[in-house]
């Protein structure tokens, strides 16, 4: 499947947006978290600053998000995991409301109740969870609904290679194949589940090989490359939309930051992240666009300025929005 000029431009711009978003977050997140502003004796305070709590960034993993979401419509469902920003951005989740949520503001997607691991945007059918492996069966449910309601919408479950050892993953694969659901399971193999290398957590090298055990196609994308993901996902999404059932895709990708911000990363060979950044998928896609005459220096600069304005505006919106009232904590336990 050949990407159109429009799809190429979209993927490129989205990758830049994701990267800009994550790099910005890595700086904003650190505000007020380091000495001397925090409790004496601490090196870092996770609960301090304008964006407190855990923060899992996806810089380096952009190809997975854009290569898949390039095939999706607004009414397709995406279920992400604890590292959700790249998927959310690629699914066109409202950037302002998503950012405000991470600042814990009343204007956030969840009015400040959810935070960065719990982003819900029903307008574009996006959700995610901090519980590893939880999303795969939920995507099956969305796909089941599409089938029952007679639409040709599809559902995507994105999760890490670590999640593929969770029971929920295996149950979801069997359900999806048994019921021939329009769902695509996309495993991001960034080599680590926190500190544990894939080789130390998974008995086989490729999760794509597990697909055969459940009676569905398994595809391994061996390069952290947007077009390679685009090709694999295009077939899988088309297959699902046709009613031919699920696919399991595993993509080898790279995590540039620590597992979470503040991760000492002592388990990682020194300089590994720096080395990974040498194979940045964004300029690689940029080169493809240039070769096709879709991009030049001026257009690139204009695009980057546009994206950066959008990202900055979202951060400003989040920062400047009001906090919810404390007693709003009592609202929304049940639907009225």
């Amino acid at each position: 499947m050949e990407a159109t000029a429009e799809q190429l431009r979209w993927m490129y711009e989205k990758m830049i947006e994701i990267r800009d978003y994550e790099e910005t977050m890595s700086r904003v997140y650190l505000e007020a978290k380091l000495p001397p502003k925090i409790q004496k004796g601490l090196a870092f305070d996770i609960g301090a600053g304008p964006v407190p709590g855990e923060m899992h960034l996806a810089a380096g993993q952009e190809p997975v998000a854009v290569g898949v979401c390039a095939h999706l419509r607004r009414d397709d469902t995406v279920v992400g995991a604890h590292r959700p920003h790249h998927f959310a951005i690629a699914k066109d989740v409202d950037l302002n409301a998503m950012t405000a949520e991470m600042f814990g503001k009343a204007t956030g997607l969840g009015r400040g109740k959810g935070g960065h691991m719990h982003l819900f945007d029903p307008a574009v059918k996006f959700s995610c969870s901090g519980i590893v492996g939880a999303g795969a069966p939920q995507a099956c449910g969305a796909a089941l609904a599409a089938k029952k309601l007679g639409t040709d919408a599809v559902a995507i479950a994105f999760f890490g290679e670590g999640a593929a050892n969770q029971g929920a993953f295996h149950e979801a694969l069997n359900l999806a194949a048994l019921w021939r659901l329009p769902v695509v399971f996309v495993v991001e193999d960034n080599k680590y589940g926190i500190s544990v290398e894939k080789s130390a957590s998974t008995a086989i090298a490729s999760n794509a090989d597990r697909a055969v055990a459940y009676g569905m196609p398994g595809v391994l994308v061996e390069r952290n490359d947007a077009l390679a993901v685009f090709t694999a996902a295009g077939e899988a999404v088309a297959r699902a939309r046709r009613g031919d059932g699920p696919t399991l895709i595993e993509v080898k990708t790279d995590r540039y930051f620590g597992h979470f911000q503040g991760d000492p990363e002592t388990y990682r060979p020194k300089g590994e992240a720096k080395e990974l950044r040498q194979h940045d998928p964004i300029p690689a896609l940029g080169a493809v666009l240039r070769a096709r005459g879709l991009l030049d220096d001026a257009a690139d600069a204009a695009l980057r300025a546009r994206v950066s304005g959008r990202v900055q505006a979202a951060y400003d919106f989040g920062r400047n929005s009001p906090y919810p009232e404390p007693q709003d904590a009592l609202l929304h336990v049940f639907a009225e």
Binding site: G104, G112, K113, P326, A329, V333
Partner: peptide, 16 residues
């Protein structure tokens, strides 16, 4: 905790 899930936002969490 007044029978609500623990909310994320600082003022909400401090309340809960």
């Amino acid at each position: 905790v007044p029978d609500v899930p623990i909310p994320f936002s600082r003022p909400l969490e401090q309340f809960a």
